[in-house]
Write a protein that binds this DNA or RNA. Structure first.
Lengths: 215, 215
DNA sequence: TGCTGTATAGTCCATGTGGACTAATCAGTC
DNA sequence: GACTGATTAGTCCACATGGACTATACAGCA
């Protein structure tokens, strides 16, 4: 398992290398002090896993991860001491599958490397909790389910009309797009209003968006 | 650490008890074969952690978790062999902070119990990956960011007006609610339309909903 | 075979909305 | 002290929308 370590702090680089190198199944093939340097290093050493610090001067860990994953098929494990929803989300979105607190036990460090290398994900318990809470609380979820359920109760043509309303079309544009008379489009929308139990077309648009049906 | 084990399979109950009981820091204070039985057991034994199977006849693990967390302050670790986004999400939403594959190593089982007991989350690497991918791919995210950025560019009063539009108010109702003249409400909405670069109020409503600003 | 739901189409009229303007007041900025 | 942006307010008019109806045709179902 070929690994590179990216951190602006010399002590961290040395410590991580010191933990991983003695292991028979992991070899640290290089260290870098910044994002740009890491990308250069990855090009030449072709690592399986990159241990990446997030806060670094210059190109930060998130940018570096994005750039790195665009050109290699390495896996990335983020290392940091911050555990805000915001940061975790941005890092995972950049493509990292591992997330470690810097005070992690040596065993966990090696385990994280091996876990992401075989295609699974490894997050520290603290980060896992942050992620779980984000998914669990996901406000507006109930509202979305309700809107989706209402949308599913529409007929095919009512759905078409509703989507066009959400896209900002006028009644006559809807009639044109659906190849029907103006009065027909209006009748469909009256039905949609009834079924959604709303007052006007604006709320139809809001419901369609909430149901995730705006294309 | 007081633990109860809930599973409809006698062999699983015995195996889990056999793994956890020998440990000095964990005591299995009861086992149950179903959801209803588990709730009864939790009432009498007051466990710290409940290991809960998801697929059970009668009351399933998700329902049981919801009911159980409503009446005790125990933590729940789900046990299952399925790892679909759907199931993981429903279980986490029900309030579980642990999620194990049934073929988990004995060490991981005990670690999961201890991790959730101290308030963190523990997911098997496979489930962690499912969760990470859900967060990372989250379609519509870019659209949401864009809408939120546009919304942030509005002035205070324009924001108020925009929210009221999304709620389905007419111009005169907006004027009333904001204690301004009809023409003022219209002027604000003209500005909003300009800044959002949209054609009509329906699209204003859609953008406000997309930005997550509908109260 | 009649009932129900869907899709189509129409009329009439009150009200709402969009567009194009102008303009005063006030707060902060250069 | 002039300028800019925010907030307020106004007029006029064309067009869109909502509401309340009626009505035909066709499908599937009991």
């Amino acid at each position: 398992m070929r690994v590179i370590v990216v951190d602006d702090d010399f002590l961290v680089r040395a410590a991580v290398k010191g933990i991983l190198d003695p292991r028979a199944d992991i070899e640290v093939v290089g260290v870098a002090a910044g994002g740009a340097e890491a990308i250069e290093l990855a090009r030449t050493t072709r690592p399986d896993v990159v241990l990446m610090d997030i806060q670094m001067p210059g190109m930060d860990g998130i940018e570096a991860t994005r750039a790195l994953l665009a050109m290699t098929d390495a896996e990335v494990v983020a290392m940091t001491s911050i555990a805000t929803t915001e940061t975790v989300e941005r890092m995972l979105r950049a493509g990292a599958y591992g997330y470690l607190l810097k005070d992690t036990a040596p065993d966990a460090l090696a385990e994280a490397v091996l876990t992401v290398a075989r295609g699974d994900a490894f997050l520290s318990p603290r980060h896992t909790r942050v992620l779980v809470e984000r998914v669990a609380s996901d406000s507006g979820h109930a509202a979305h389910r309700h809107a989706a359920a209402l949308f599913a109760m529409l007929t095919d043509r009512e759905r078409d009309a509703a989507r066009l309303v959400a896209a900002g079309a006028t009644d006559s544009e809807i009639a044109l797009a659906m190849h029907v008379a103006l009065s027909t489009a209006k009748t469909h929308l009256q039905q949609v209003k009834l079924k959604f139990a709303v007052r006007n077309r604006t709320q139809i648009g809001v419901m369609v968006e909430r149901a995730g049906e705006t294309p």
